[in-house]
Design a protein around this nucleic acid. Structure first.
Lengths: 193, 193
DNA sequence: TGTACATCAGTGAACGCGCGTTCACTGATGTAC
DNA sequence: TGTACATCAGTGAACGCGCGTTCACTGATGTAC
């Protein structure tokens, strides 16, 4: 069956979107291509018309996830009054919703330790997405130079990702809330002017 | 062949030690039991005389790794003069050596994102090891109550683990050094009195 | 002291399963003439 | 307008591999008598 011109790119986008969620929820090894495709009402054989390998999919899915999260955080910052933008970003990142939400949350928090091991973590696509994200976030932070703001953003976001990952490992919901609240205060204070 | 009484516990300890390194280097899925045992000059079948399952090994190995790291950090703190103990711990954790050293470093930095997913992350053994570690580290931090010091330790260590994990994903050694240096300054300032 | 039996850490073949990837095939639509 | 052929997203069986786990077996040593 021959399909309309946009059909292929739409299918590709559907695979990418679903994969990006699955990888965040189940890890790089936890998401199998056959089940991924089955959930999209497709068969696994067709996957290779869209991506060269699972590795390529992982890399792209990771980058797409980061762009998604970055957009969401930037929207929060832009909605906040001047001087409270960084705080708004921290509150959003360390919110209960983000903590509960593996699948559509920050891919760094969901996959942090796999990034150092996996070639995709050092892959160009994800590396560039990370730099774009940090550059964007750096604009909301205080600092004398762009370089120092960028570095501050890198430390802030890697730190918050670690804290979010560990908070997710905590079983008790009440304790998770407490941890998040305390963490928001600490990170807000850390970026204080 | 019947062995001496201590033989079994020694073999168990050797497996645990090797596993703890392999898991940190290659992740939970990356370390196969057959290769682990082969490196110890044993065959994979014998593994089940020592551990009920790979899962059980993972859980124990993780906890053992955390104890190891905690001991090392406590030694650094104890060697530092009063008032500089927390700084010494931060410097040690965010040192270039720790960053380069996947296999014998902090298991949280090496496996952070797998902890939230893996049952072992919420397992009693590791949970208890984490609490013991944080309680110990909390003693070096300023704060009005034990509870607030503990919470500060939890945020500090989860944050540093995230930063370390992301620094490891950075390919350029020079940039890694810069990141670590900046991070040490940030975390030192964050725990400032 | 000697003999028969029990123990059990370690062996290595085998099982079963899931997964990434390949490949010949399908069939609706577009293109050439 | 009609016919023959090309295209290519998607199908589904098959391949090969690695891995966790099981299991009958080995054989040196300890124990019972």
């Amino acid at each position: 069956m021959r399909y309309a011109a946009e059909h292929k790119s739409e299918t590709r986008a559907r695979i990418l979107r679903a994969a990006s969620r699955r990888f965040r929820r189940h890890g790089a090894e936890g998401a199998a291509i056959s089940t991924l495709m089955r959930d999209l009402r497709l068969t696994h054989g067709g996957f290779y018309r869209h991506f060269a390998s699972k590795e390529a999919l992982f890399s792209e899915a990771l980058a797409a996830a980061l762009v998604e999260v970055s957009d969401r955080l930037a929207a929060r910052a832009d909605a906040a009054p001047a001087g409270q933008k960084a705080g708004a970003v921290i509150d959003a990142y360390l919110s209960a919703e983000h903590c509960d939400d593996f699948a559509t949350g920050c891919p760094v928090a969901a996959l942090a330790s796999e990034l150092a091991r996996h070639p995709a973590g050092g892959g160009r696509v994800f590396q560039r997405a990370t730099e774009a994200h940090l550059t964007r976030m750096a604009a909301y932070l205080p600092g004398n130079s762009a370089a120092s703001r960028y570095k501050a953003a890198a430390i802030l976001f890697s730190g918050m990702a670690g804290t979010l990952a560990m908070t997710r490992a905590e079983r008790d919901p009440g304790r998770r809330r407490e941890m998040l609240e305390a963490a928001r205060a600490v990170y807000r204070r850390a970026i204080g002017p």
